[in-house]
Design a protein around this nucleic acid. Structure first.
Lengths: 227, 227
DNA sequence: CAGCTAGTTTAGGCAAGGTTAAATTTAAAT
DNA sequence: ATTTAAATTTAACCTTGCCTAAACTAGCTG
């Protein structure tokens, strides 16, 4: 079973698989072949092949025709990748003048090339942040991560207040638009109106400015209700 | 002939080949299969195979059983890699507290992952240096490079003065030792004595401190004579 | 409970970039 | 002018990670 668990240099591909599987498991509780393929933009049979190798390497377990489950070793590695990605994004924004919306691609490449030592130095230079600029929690070097599940903005009732906590970092155009509305992780707002049939929400921000937000966009904004 | 010259994403391997070939050509005027293999720590037949592909891609020309010659496209790409490597090393040392002797390996991985945009930002943050901390010239974004050939310390006559200009960045232990002697690019010194039969040199530094330097080490220290 | 569909896996291939062993060529040395 | 040693190339093969086409479950639906 636990064949070559403790190897150091996992390939770029393997690192990507583990990260994607972790995210799928976190979101929907399971990771299926087609979902992995979709997320990595590759064909499903390629996933079947890789999954077999990852299972042999002890990084995940696999029940035929059912999904896939990361082992502890696999999850540890996935969290390492998440930590790298989020620290790199933070560093590029804080220290090198990148914008919110154009760090993802750069981090996606760098995360496979940096050493733990470099991540440690970046982390120190940043003052050991707990979250990245998109609001995503940064796993610790020991592999611990805050697992709060926020709620989409569409779940906030009219009349109640909430904080915006997290936005997905993957879609550059979407991020640009979110920023143009003055929305950032941490801002507080009230939902003042919403239209039926998955219509847009109207929210009021701290400076009494009101913004209208389409349903789909609102779904992607992870929030926390004010008590 | 000039098949796929203008492609954007060259593989890691190809980038390494081009860089190594450029360095060999610069040092000894030619790049032979075995020298390339040696520099990349791979077997000579692997080089033959790759050389064929690189020639087809228009990155170099190849005369059977003779060496290899970069084309303009190949040289441009090699200089891009050199620029990346040297800016990354500079950045790690200046901005992230790395030491002289432990940046090479990290830069060797990062140089394949960074975008031109990131290099530009690092360059700006550093104040657009002309040389890296080992004294190596940094090619411009346009692919121009200072091609001064320095002389090894062993070529400085007893009694004359010179500047240390450049040290190789590849050997970590050697760099550590060089630093411990107080030697850095830019320091001036006099050669006060040398033993025959490739024996050690004695030099005097600015603060009148004298140091004895073995022949082999002295050969690796690139210097410029004071007029 | 039989059948269909969607999702998954197997089979067979391909390209990149390595390997070792054998054949060639160059160039140096008798 | 040969011979020979060293360097180079060719041949045959391996691994990784992807592909398409075809075969196979699982589980819903009638």
């Amino acid at each position: 079973m636990a064949a070559a668990v403790e190897r150091q240099g996992l390939s770029r591909s393997i690192e990507d698989y583990l990260k994607v599987i972790y995210k799928l498991q976190f979101q929907s509780g399971s990771a299926q072949t087609s979902a992995i393929a979709e997320a990595l933009s590759i064909a499903p049979p390629s996933v079947s092949g890789m999954v077999k190798r990852l299972a042999e390497a002890g990084l995940l377990t696999h029940a035929r025709y059912r999904g896939v489950q990361l082992t502890e070793a696999g999850e540890r590695q996935a969290l390492t990748m998440l930590r790298r990605h989020r620290i790199i994004e933070s560093y590029l924004i804080e220290q090198l003048g990148y914008d919110w919306h154009n760090v993802h691609e750069e981090a996606e490449r760098l995360e496979h090339a940096v050493s733990d030592g470099l991540i440690e130095r970046m982390d120190r230079a940043l003052g050991r942040p707990s979250h990245d600029p998109h609001g995503a929690p940064i796993p610790t070097a020991e592999g611990e991560i805050e697992t709060t599940h926020y709620v989409p903005m569409t779940d906030i009732e009219v009349g109640s207040a909430a904080y915006l906590r997290m936005v997905a970092d993957t879609d550059s155009e979407r991020l640009r638009f979110i920023a143009s509305l003055g929305l950032r992780p941490g801002v507080q707002f009230d939902v003042v109106a919403r239209q039926p049939f998955n219509g847009p929400l109207t929210i009021r921000l701290g400076d009494d400015r009101e913004e209208v937000i389409g349903y789909e966009l609102a779904q992607s904004l992870q929030c926390e209700k004010v008590q």
